[in-house]
Design a binder for these strands. Sequence first.
DNA 1: ATAGAATTGTGAACGTTTTCACAAACTCCC
DNA 2: GGGAGTTTGTGAAAACGTTCACAATTCTAT
Lengths: 213, 213
Amino acid sequence: MAASPQKVSESTVRRLSLYLRFLEEFEEKGVTTVSSEELAGRGGTTAAQVRKDLSIFGSFGKRGLGYAVPLLGREIRRILGLSRSWRVALVGAGRIGAALFEYPNFRTRGFRIVTVLDHDPKKVGRLWDGTRIRHVDTLEETLRETKVDIAILAVPEEVVQDVVDRVVSVEIKAILNFAPTQLRVPNDVVVNDVNMAMELEALSFALVNRALR
Amino acid sequence: MAASPQKVSESTVRRLSLYLRFLEEFEEKGVTTVSSEELAGRGGTTAAQVRKDLSIFGSFGKRGLGYAVPLLGREIRRILGLSRSWRVALVGAGRIGAALFEYPNFRTRGFRIVTVLDHDPKKVGRLWDGTRIRHVDTLEETLRETKVDIAILAVPEEVVQDVVDRVVSVEIKAILNFAPTQLRVPNDVVVNDVNMAMELEALSFALVNRALR
DNA sequence: ATAGAATTGTGAACGTTTTCACAAACTCCC
DNA sequence: GGGAGTTTGTGAAAACGTTCACAATTCTAT
Ligand SMILES: NC(=O)c1ccc[n+]([C@@H]2O[C@H](COP(=O)([O-])OP(=O)(O)OC[C@H]3O[C@@H](n4cnc5c(N)ncnc54)[C@H](O)[C@@H]3O)[C@@H](O)[C@H]2O)c1
Ligand SMILES: NC(=O)c1ccc[n+]([C@@H]2O[C@H](COP(=O)([O-])OP(=O)(O)OC[C@H]3O[C@@H](n4cnc5c(N)ncnc54)[C@H](O)[C@@H]3O)[C@@H](O)[C@H]2O)c1
């Protein structure tokens, strides 16, 4: 029950993330108990799906009642690995990089940007809210020194493969990539892409095929 | 053959987007023909998958040879609706909004930001590279006047549902949402989310469950 | 205590997506 | 022109993910 022996699908993980957000909203409103029905109603899924997702990891509800909001929140946070806080490096202090760095929500959710790296001499050395921007030439030693768990890559697509190779060389196992490039990494490294062009293209497809649905 | 009578899965659309990018790379290198094998090798999929994806829409290859790079590129662009250019509104001229607006890649791929709206009196009236920022109070008339097809929402999560309701009221059918909020829209409206917090949480999950795989 | 109402947890059914495997179609070279 | 070598397009099989349906459990009220 405690461990998760089964294979967990990508979609289940995404939905857990969603449920957690809903639970936080319920908690703010002072709701103490929710049913799978209510949890599903808040977003694009079904009550059965909610129960299946949760049942992979254990049995957190009470039959006839539902789920205790704070408890389920804690459990999902534990499952997702959000009980601890993660040390994050930001490579590329450009437009996207700056937006991410200034966004307070990541820190409150346990992702602390402890390192910022850039290539541009005009940016290197600057102090961003207490964090000194370091030169990307020092990437390997800096990531090791600052004990980084996760790297966010917000560099131009032309250089992103070089950067990722170096990031991988210091045993970083998790990468969030903003460049519209399919990265080549060893298969014990997880890469998640934020590919906005792809999202827009999917919208375009939906628009031209609207009639056919 | 010409039309697409079948149901097309989300993942197929995403992969088409990917193939298009690879084709553009091949085209730049002067490669005239690629096999499904080569197309698959560039990214995380298989040759059979490539062929299945394409076969939904027609038969674009030559047995024994492969696919003609420029032709397949044109076909995928047509399938995705990228032959035309799309008129895009940006709501929220904050950090993310500014990064998106300044990003030249969208325009070159056929997505033109023709309208920028914000709430902040300090921002309204400013000229961003030829585009005047208009007050969000004029959203309905502005979107109609500027014939917008797609809305990008980069506003705080507290107001995003209000904004989306108004966007939907003027018959916009495609939305790219950056707020970490599950939007409620009629079901003829397509919403794609860019949820970075969710991506980070998925990385967190992958890190804590690394051992179990 | 017990009946009645609510809701979970889960095996089984179903549907969708991916992979397999191979005949058909094409190329290339001798 | 024919045979060897490729590679596509696609049914069929396998894997995977979602939905169904219901016994088991808990709560509430009397
Ligand atoms: N801006 C957007 O809206 C947007 C949208 C989609 C995708 N992207 C992608 O995100 C990435 C960043 O985009 P951006 O708009 O922030 O670009 P940007 O040019 O504003 O920033 C890139 C930053 O990376 C730095 N850099 C360049 N080479 C480097 C290296 N080798 N090592 C470290 N830093 C280096 C630059 O000095 C700059 O500060 C790009 O890959 C882009 O394609 C951006
Ligand atoms: N910055 C990031 O890295 C980041 C990361 C993930 C998600 N997001 C999400 O993206 C959205 C925008 O984030 P941001 O960092 O750019 O915020 P921001 O505060 O920098 O920008 C928000 C902009 O929206 C404007 N605005 C406020 N209310 C408005 C309204 N009713 N109508 C129109 N405009 C209005 C503000 O004036 C401001 O210009 C938020 O929902 C945020 O949660 C941001």
